[in-house]
Write a protein that binds this DNA or RNA. Structure first.
Lengths: 222, 222
DNA sequence: GAAGTAAACTACACCGTGCAGTTCACCTTG
DNA sequence: CAAGGTGAACTGCACGGTGTAGTTTACTTC
């Protein structure tokens, strides 16, 4: 950890290489890092998972650590883009049934698609490695990951408030904070941030209860 | 990880040894595991931290892994006991100023005392290692750790509701969930569960805002 | 003499590199 | 356009160096 800003000439930003190899390496690295954590994940295992020679990994990435950081960047962007899409999809056009819209959005945010499972696993590893990660990496991750999602959620909820679907009187940011706290944070905590499976009906119950509380706080004036 | 239930005769439950050594080992293990994580923490480092021979560690504990599990048990109990005490202290006797009581409790729960820092660090490691931990360890930790705290909080908040200090109509468990979600979960997330320091005034702002939201939801009928 | 200490030791896993040989994409040339 | 050359990318393997879990041994202390 804490790399010293790539001193030498590295293959870092070389877009060369046979197509597919780079992608296979990154995908495999995400999978293995997510499954094993940083320390336990061996470069040999990543190479095997990618169906690639270990030497090839070092052709594309300077270091185990730089490989990890590159994959973290990709993953946070992918997760953020996916979640922003979810938010726009469920909250984009004025919904007739606000409770239903918030509930399905909450569920979608709380239980990650299996397609993105490895990305979310990697987010857990970021949490675990946070004390050993260079601060600028954390900040960058915050900015391109959760920060963007939170901002998008605030934007959409602010629009709903502006349209009268939610009570006014609070900033959009507060709405976003309260939504994530009440609707998703308990699911995250109960499942140890997705590490342990949580029964579907339990998830639903938590989300529905959270939405109810959120609407009790910020729902349309009665 | 995933030990196979201690097959041989082990020093596991032997209360022998010079007094103080065992405690020093456990304390050092907690510190080093908390600081480095499971994989990075070496038994040599723990021995050095404890001012003890490595052999002595293996006299008291079967294994690096069993050492880790033992320390986890201790830590979760210590954290739980400490937090239960906080809850009783701030919510035990009917308070004149409910807002102030909830705020100071929230602050106390959100920023751990430096005395318990290593315990909280270890909790982060539990999160990180969760996928590699035997399930019964997780369950046991849940029960003796967060579960007990949550139950105590529900109990006290239920009493307040019964005394009219909070609005009725919800179960004590829901009160406890909403309190932790609104008051502490954002602090935890922002600080990556305590891994990164969070400015004191920022913490205060989050806690106060959370208490305000909690009271808007469940505060005494106006 | 039971418990602890210090240091050496075994056995292994891992990172990163070197290198000889192979494969593939592309480009020259007839 | 097709045969053939060219060079970069890739493979497979072995190796040096390092770190670590756990054991052993000889010695010390209470």
């Amino acid at each position: 950890m804490t790399p010293s800003a790539a001193p030498r000439t590295t293959p870092e930003s070389a877009p060369t290489g046979r197509p597919g190899k780079r992608a296979a390496i990154d995908c495999a690295a995400r999978t293995v890092f997510g499954r094993e954590g940083y320390s336990r994940a061996s470069v040999d295992a990543i190479a095997a998972e990618a169906g690639v020679s270990k030497r090839t990994i070092y052709n594309h990435h300077q270091d185990k650590e730089h490989l990890f950081l590159a994959v973290v960047q990709q993953s946070s962007q992918a997760v953020a883009a996916h979640q922003e899409e979810l938010i726009d999809h469920h909250l984009g056009s004025p919904e007739a049934d606000l409770t239903a819209a918030l509930t399905t959005l909450g569920r979608a945010l709380a239980v990650p698609q299996t397609d993105f499972e490895s990305h979310f696993s990697l987010v857990r590893v970021i949490f675990a490695e946070a004390p050993h990660l260079p601060p600028h990496v954390i900040e960058s991750w915050r900015g391109t990951g959760p920060g963007r999602v939170r901002a998008r959620l605030a934007e959409r909820l602010g629009e709903l408030a502006g349209a009268g679907a939610l009570r006014g009187g609070t900033t959009p940011e507060t709405l976003a904070v309260h939504f994530t706290q009440l609707v998703t944070s308990e699911v995250y905590e109960r499942s140890l941030h997705g590490a342990l499976p949580l029964a579907a009906d339990e998830t639903n119950a938590l989300v529905e209860s959270g939405v109810a509380a959120f609407l009790a706080l910020h729902g349309p004036a009665s």
